[in-house]
Nucleic acid binder design. Structure first.
Lengths: 130, 130
DNA sequence: ATCCTGTATCTGTCAAGCGCATATAGATGA
DNA sequence: TCATCTATATGCGCTTGACAGATACAGGAT
């Protein structure tokens, strides 16, 4: 059962994929953590609001990115052994993580400019050629 | 001498990188070939106009993508053994390649929407929080 | 003649990113 | 008891793409 998950292997029929942007989950998770302290499973749900609805993210990817962010000092974590359900690792963004997100934003604005330039070039080219 | 080439390894200081978009070279090369028959070395130069000025593309990447496009029937090639310089492999886009580019464009428009949504969310969040 | 530079294509290798499968485990309800 | 939901984690393998280097033709300088 492939659970309706989509693939986007190069060379096959391509479908729109938000993960077209390399490592995009990293800034998205940082922004979500900038809004509020949270944990992996919850963030996985919150991602749906960011264009990952049609193309769900694998949980392992989220957990690994969170760990990687922690190793680099961009987030901190603590265990929450609440009364209901299994323990959760709660993540909190740091000041370094805040700066890092800022650099990501600059990077993505540049990506946006490049993408726009490409799409405009395509459109104007297609207006001329048939 | 690292020839001024920039890195964008995760976790180091990030710099704007047009290759942030996964496999972006593929549609760019297809659009360039849609404009005119061309060869790898020439395309490598033409890429500079597409946001790769600051962050030059490695030639091996270009050649491998062209080969991959040919294997999948999106371009064809022929050798041009001209009088000046070494032989060049001239690439030409096919009808399938044309369709494939069209699908790429749809994909990139979706990526553009997701990216915009994210940047707007960031901006409005930052307006509220300090 | 030899070397350097520019043009032109191609291969080997390695690390990172990420999808997929799977393991583990507490809590809840049938 | 067993399935399901919540929650986190590891192993594996494929693809991308950076980096290094090989090959080769041509023209100009030494």
């Amino acid at each position: 059962m492939s659970s309706g998950r989509r693939r986007w292997r190069a060379g096959q029929q391509e479908e729109a994929c938000p993960r077209r942007i390399h490592n995009f989950l990293e800034p998205v998770l940082l922004l979500l953590l900038h809004c509020d302290e949270s944990h992996g499973y919850d963030l996985l749900e919150a991602l749906k609001e960011f264009g990952f609805e049609q193309n769900p993210v694998d949980s392992s990817t989220v957990y690994r990115i969170l760990r990687s962010l922690e190793e680099r000092g961009f987030v901190t974590s603590r265990w929450e052994t609440g009364d209901a359900g299994p323990a959760r690792r709660l993540y909190l963004i740091t000041e370094n993580g805040d700066d890092y997100l800022g650099r990501w934003i600059e990077d993505l604005r540049e990506t946006d400019r490049v993408l726009h330039h490409f799409l405009e070039t395509y459109d104007s080219h297609m207006q001329v050629h048939a």
